[in-house]
Simulated assay, not measured.
Amino acid sequence: MTARSNAQQRPGASYNHALKGISLLKSQRLAVLPVDSYDLESELSVVDRHEYKGEYDALTFGAWSCHVLANGSGTESDIAFRPHGDHLTPTELGRKLPGIMSLVTDHFSLDRLQWVRIFSLRDGIMAPHVDFLEFTEPGTRLQIPLRTTEESLHSENDIVYHLRRGEVWKIHTTDPHSAGSSARTARLTLCLDFSDAEEPVAIQGDIPATEPIRIIERPEPTEAELEELLDSCRNLTAATMRSVFRRFVELHFKRRAHAATVFDWYVEAARRSGDDDMITKAQAYRTYCIEKRSQAETFDW
């Protein structure tokens, strides 16, 4: 089943922009799964308590974590994504979550499935980034929220949108995109990575979509807002560069601006500091997030 893209009709510019946002959105809602048919609450609590080793700290701000249910090694501490040709093997965590694993096996073929992970996001945000820069060929990444709130959002280029619980989304990973949530309750999203970006992923046992795709309306940033943000970094230092960046991403989610523009703002703010090292660091972070990085490369703040 492929859900038809639509928007709740509203008169005027907001409705027109919502339609335009849907037409330009490269990520796709593929289906809706009957998540309510599975008793997952106790298992989601297990994920809430599960420890995270900080593999993706360079890209995340606030409480974001990654939890591996199945991969090529069967080791839950093996969380750094990479394509592999091994047999998909449940981790110790995955074996503790039979309901969530049943949701996967009931609705998806395992033939091309390489990773099963859960992303947790609570009062946090991700830097805009491009996935698979390290690899010659991208795969197919699906995300299915298992617990979410209205404050939990995704972005792609200049569009911000919401993934509802049970919706299966094929994330367009090769354009700048991000995720953020201001909620105190952790959003938990099932992430499935399949080999081959071109071959469609078969989905069984889905249910009809009853809600329109939700595009979030944002006003244009004002000159005063941008000036305040940029000027706030005149005293930027090596110690504050990381924490300050979150403000730039938060403005992208609140105001209509391209995800890559976050880095334009950040580099300009670094220039206002008058420190060449800060400018170089800001430019290097842009490169790492959306332009070029090698496998296993880390970013040193």
Rank of each mutant, 00 (worst) to 15 (best):
D123V: 04
F135Q: 11
P145T: 01
R117D: 10
L97Q: 10
V104Q: 03
M126L: 14
T105Y: 06
E134H: 14
A127E: 01
V116I: 12
T136M: 05
L103I: 07
V116D: 02
P145M: 08
E134I: 04
I100C: 06
I144P: 08
P145W: 01
M126S: 06
I118R: 13
D111M: 01
F108N: 08
P98I: 13
T136G: 05
T105G: 09
H129G: 08
D131Y: 02
L103M: 09
V104T: 05
L121Y: 08
L133M: 14
R141C: 09
E137I: 00
T136D: 13
K96W: 05
T105Q: 13
V104G: 02
L146Y: 07
S120Y: 11
G124L: 14
I118V: 15
T136I: 10
Q143N: 10
D131N: 12
Q114E: 12
L110V: 07
A127Q: 05
R117C: 13
L97F: 12
I125M: 11
F132D: 15
P98W: 12
D111Q: 11
K96F: 07
S120E: 11
R112K: 13
G139L: 04
P138E: 10
T140M: 02
R112M: 03
I118P: 12
S120H: 13
L146E: 07
M101A: 05
P128C: 07
P138T: 13
I125C: 12
F135Y: 13
L110N: 06
P128L: 03
W115N: 00
P128Q: 04
L113C: 03
Q143K: 03
Q143V: 08
H129A: 04
P128G: 06
L103A: 03
H129E: 09
L113Q: 05
D106R: 09
S109R: 15
E137C: 01
H107M: 07
R117L: 13
M101K: 02
T105C: 06
V130K: 03
V130R: 05
T140V: 05
L103H: 08
M126K: 09
H107K: 04
H107F: 09
K96S: 15
P145S: 03
T140S: 11
F119Q: 15
L121N: 14
G99A: 09
R141S: 04
W115D: 00
E137F: 01
T136C: 02
V104A: 07
L103C: 10
F135W: 11
G99T: 05
L121P: 09
P138I: 02
R112F: 01
M126G: 03
L121Q: 15
L146D: 01
R112G: 09
A127S: 15
D106L: 07
V130T: 03
S102I: 06
S102G: 08
D123A: 14
Q143H: 09
L133Q: 11
M101F: 00
D106E: 12
F119C: 14
G124P: 13
R112D: 08
V130F: 01
L103R: 03
L110Q: 08
